[in-house]
């Protein structure tokens, strides 16, 4: 009995894994093929065309977009983590009237999807003259209710005695924050940062709306333009470019997976 259910479980898992991995494998195959082969429905490359990658890199100006993406994602991540840390710290360690209400407000923000706010956000940054700037892309994304929630849960596991001991020892709030809270929340901070970086890196719609010119556009838009601008669809180039764009995500996932899992499922203490 047990054997069968285990076999079934594995069958389902393998099926799901194949479904998940198929697009990735297919893209890899395409990215190494000849365009003519693809047109003829020949998806298994005869010869591996690694030069596709070089071509995609130069032709689509990927490096340029990538720079923008790195800037946007890095700054967004930094700001989001910093803000979430400070907000969570205040909610957990600084008693003030209405801290519960403030936290509730933050959480209700989590229920409003970003897409609903896109038009108002556009009007806001337009009015502020921030269209076509990094700031315009970044600013609406730096508040993260999820981040506050994640870090608060973690900080609540830090015994209050540590704060009291610090108060008696006479160290200030910021010292306690820096020397105790941040190190003890390390796992959650890394989790949040990886998560935030990926979301930002993969963000497509908002950077598109917030920009009209190429100067600050991010790589997802560049990718889209590559496939849209060519009259004749050049699948192998699109596939190669897609692979290049996906690499940072894969690297982060590869190295951060265990941490990510840990940080999302349990607290970092003990």
């Amino acid at each position: 009995m047990k054997k069968y259910s285990l076999a079934l479980l594995y069958a389902v898992l393998i099926l799901l894994a194949v479904l998940m991995v198929f697009p990735l494998l297919f893209t890899i195959l395409l990215s190494l093929s000849d365009n003519a082969d693809i047109m003829n429905g020949q998806y298994w490359p005869q010869v591996l065309h690694f030069e596709n990658y070089a071509e995609a890199f130069t032709k689509a100006n990927l490096l340029y977009y990538m720079k923008n993406s790195v800037i946007v994602a890095a700054v967004t991540t930094f700001c989001q983590v910093a803000l979430a840390l400070l907000a969570a710290y205040a909610i957990v360690f600084i008693p003030f009237r209405g801290s519960g209400i403030v936290f509730g407000l933050f959480m209700s923000g989590m229920m409003i999807p970003m897409d609903v706010l896109m038009i108002t956000n556009f009007q806001t940054i337009n009015a502020a003259g921030l269209l076509n700037t990094y700031a315009g892309i970044i600013l609406p994304c730096i508040g993260s209710a999820f981040g506050i929630f994640l870090l608060r849960q973690n900080m609540k596991q830090i015994p209050l005695e540590l704060k009291e001991a610090s108060d008696i020892a006479g160290v200030g709030q910021f010292y306690f924050f820096r020397k105790v809270v941040v190190p003890l929340s390390k796992n959650s901070i890394i989790t949040l940062a990886v998560y935030c970086f990926l979301v930002s890196w993969n963000n497509y719609l908002w950077p598109l709306i917030a920009t009209t010119k190429d100067e600050v556009r991010t790589i997802q838009i560049g990718l889209r333009m590559l496939s849209a601008s060519d009259t004749q669809q050049d699948f192998r180039l699109v596939a190669a470019a897609t692979m290049i764009v996906t690499i940072p995500t894969l690297i982060l996932m590869f190295f951060g997976q265990s941490r990510l899992q840990e940080g999302l499922t349990k607290g970092a203490l003990k």
Binding site: P159, E161, L162, E164, A165, V180, P183, L184
Partner: peptide
């Protein structure tokens, strides 16, 4: 002050 559960900083 010495706390019941010591309040040592684990890290």
């Amino acid at each position: 002050m010495v706390f019941q559960n010591y309040a040592l900083f684990p890290h």
